[in-house]
Amino acid sequence: MKIKFSGVSKVFEPGIVALRDIHLQIDKGEFVYVVGATGSGKSTLLKLITREMIPTRGSVFVNDVNLRKMRAVDIPYYRRDVGLVAQDFRLIPHLTVFENVAFVMEAMAVPPRMVEYRASKVIEQVGLWRRRFMRPPQLSGGEQQRVAIARALANSPSLFVADEPTGNLDFRTAADVMKILLSINAAGVTVVMTTHNQYIVDSCRQRVIELSEGKLVRDEQLGRYTLDDNF
């Protein structure tokens, strides 16, 4: 999927400017890190892509479709093609790990055996097979995060949007998640992820977009976590 931001600003009610006149293009198959200080607008940028939010000014285009003008009936179909890992996971607390992963496919009328197969596969992929019958409140933060990743993978999306997918993970688990993301990217999936993890950005070099107080201050192919890094 191809994403284009054209003059996008997002202003919240009391006058907080979360994003300021963003121009940006992400092509199909790219891998993009979004970095920046806390409160710089990273999550807001991702929520505009998933259409959780609508820009105050400007427009976001996905495959040349203006998300602002997308018809209400088309939104669910668009979102099925977007794997989303939210910063706060957004899991359903009373459903098991398995059901949390399965219900999106169920909503898409995927046959039960296929649901079973796909859900099992992605749960195994993120290393939660033994936890598949537990519910989110019984899981650690890192485990919940991986459930969210598994759910996002389950649909085989063509765009993967992840808000700090490694935020709660230890070094090794984070590396495993990165492996998954790099492999789906290698298969042609566009990946956009925010991160505060300098080590990851510096070791798996990809395109880096940096936000500062809502402004796009850096857009660098094969960039590092910070600009003036002398190590």
């Binding site: 998933t50 959780e52 209400a72 977007v82 989303l84 957004r90 219900f103 999106v104 759910r151």
Partner: peptide
Amino acid sequence: AIMYLVGATR
């Protein structure tokens, strides 16, 4: 809200 966010229809 979550179901809608990840692609369930209304």
